[in-house]
Write a protein that binds this DNA or RNA. Structure first.
Lengths: 214, 214, 214, 214
DNA sequence: AATGAATGAGGCTTCATTCAT
DNA sequence: AATGAATGAAGCCTCATTCAT
């Protein structure tokens, strides 16, 4: 119906997301406290004052970054789980694959480390993240595990706790990359890491043919 | 006449560890950058200046915390590994048990999250930690895995990467406790978490009797 | 419509020189180490933070004072020397006259005493001053002396050392004024001082008509 | 009559001068403000607290250093002048030689720079030094010059001002050595410096045989 | 007389936030 | 809408001085 907005207008509307992108990359690189708003503004190509036209303060900027970053991927994974009908371990692999593609291989990969690092200093933010990302992600993995246990594909174990154990190496892979990896001589290979994790899991979760569970 | 050192002297000798204890609790509570040395001093019941009689600066204080608290546990684990002659998985369990008792159940449990959160902004501290804790810890787990693979107890896998996968849930357990756990309704049970992790590992690492590796 | 820059803009452009002026007067009054940046800012009518918008730190502020105030005078003197074609002693007098007008009779007169007082504790500043002021000043006087010796106007002497001897009374005049002069009852007359110095020099440097050097 | 004091007693009596010696060397090396009392005490082999048993505070220590350092040499020079009967320039050379031996070649050589550097911040000290050292030194040189002028050995010039001009290079030699000399590549030769100064003076002060003064 | 542990004021520097233009 | 100059609170670290032993 209407013509496309003029370049100028589009620029203006793009501002917030340009700022969010700049903020994400700096928050992820330096953490929340150590990121200077002046640097965020500079990376987005605007001045420090402009930033305050779009975000009330540093906290609000941080929240906006999280909000935009990860929730859509959780929703995608919920859809994948809803339409899956194969075996449960395959579902785990599908969920991981999508997560890896949409988060692990993008700038959002830095968010888990960011949240872990700042949760205590920003409890309100942590709550927001927990409700919208973590609890939904755990529910997803939890229902896959529960289905597998009920079908006899997996051993019986405490589901909630197993979820944490299963997720942990995936989170650590990202957290490591944005923290101590700078000290490491050799680059580790995330593909191999994930494959080994899933290999161990496949065999570790499987219900033994006959006797002798632990 | 009295065999006891003077109160003054006794105080002087106790100071460093009082300061280290105060520093540990604040570092773990607020992170490295956000901890004020004045608060550390106050918690130890001394003034700002006194702290500098014992530690050259904030970095040195932090390194001392690690030096006194964590490195000895690594050394203990190295001794445990050196004298171990049983099967490799048992060694992994012994190492975990000692780590859990000396680190996981003490205030030092907060250090991994601290390091993850601050590594990028304090590369020298990160290096120190990497050299003295991480690389030694990985070597320890790595040699246990390698021994198990060579003896046929474990499947053959890339050792370095498997080390990371094996360690990750243990680190995440601690990291979680000092970050997002505040948002969690139910307290999770670390004993069960570790048991499930080790169960999955025991079965996941084991070399199948006959064929069918991945 | 109006051709004048806005007041704000005008202010911004004037700031650096206002700050340099304030810094010069305080450095000269109290020395480098004892001058508080907050006082410099206050004297320029701004806050502490503003100073850092224009100068990276205290060292940079000091260097800027030298850069703006003294180095140009050295450059002028180099130009004077380059275009001079008369006798060498006249050149010495021209150099002195310009130095006296631009440095000796301004607030910059306090810099030599400042440098002498602080050189050991701020070796980087001392180096900067040595490279940019002292060595160029000495080269200037040295080449005038050398020319005079080669033309037979002056006796032959070690040039480098003679430079130091020739310059010393001029520096001492300024150093004295910013140090012990407060204790002196009668104000001494710098014009007479300089005239006597040059009188002694004119006759002292001159090559005797016939024999009898020392 | 009495036996020599015991070593222990002598040690105690030697304390103040050991402290003064240590203070001199540090004040001369770093200046007043930058000298740490802890370093003074350490160099004298005592503890920080001990220093306060002998000197009320840092200022008092500084004053004591100056008091002990130079006045005796001035007195010696006054005696030399009193008994001198040769030509006036020879007297100037004798005074210089004694000064050079007793001050210029000892640790006291740093005092002129010290006084110059701190005079403004310690006016009371500056007065003390002016009365006891500078004014007496100037009187000494002044009377030698005046005698030479009256005898026809020297040209007629304003005595007070000429004194300053004559002394300046000697003071600058010492001041330089304790300030900017660190930046200088080649060590300058003080013997040559003083010889050139005296050469220039000898010829510069001398009354010309016939006409043509300036 | 001697010690040395303890203090706390003070200076440089950073940066989130404000606001006049 | 956008700018960017200006602010001032806050933290690390030093060191003269005190005082219990």
């Amino acid at each position: 119906m209407s013509a496309l907005p003029t370049p100028r207008k589009r620029r203006k509307e793009a501002r917030p997301s340009e700022l969010l992108e700049a903020a994400l990359s700096l928050f992820v690189e330096k953490g929340f406290a150590a990121t200077r708003l002046e640097d965020v503004a500079a990376r987005a190509g605007v001045s420090k004052g402009t930033l305050y036209l779009y975000f009330e303060n540093k906290d609000a900027l941080f929240k906006a970054v999280i909000q935009e970053g990860i929730i859509p991927v959780i929703a995608e994974n919920e859809a994948i789980a809803a339409r899956h009908s194969g075996c449960s371990f395959d579902l785990l692999e599908l969920l991981l694959e999508n997560w890896w593609t949409k988060i692990g291989q993008t700038a959002f990969a830095g968010i888990p480390k960011l949240m872990v690092a700042e949760a205590r200093n920003f409890p309100e933010l942590a709550s927001f993240y927990y409700e919208n990302v973590i609890s939904r992600g755990r529910a997803l993995v939890g229902s896959a595990l529960r289905r597998g246990m009920e079908s006899g594909e997996f051993r019986s174990m405490d589901v909630e706790t197993t979820v944490d154990v299963v997720i942990a190496p995936i989170l650590m892979l990202l957290i490591w990359r944005y923290s101590m990896s700078c000290c490491q001589g050799s680059e580790s290979d995330p593909q191999m890491y994930l494959r080994i994790h899933m290999d161990l899991l496949r065999q570790g979760l499987r219900k033994p043919e006959k006797e002798s569970q632990v």
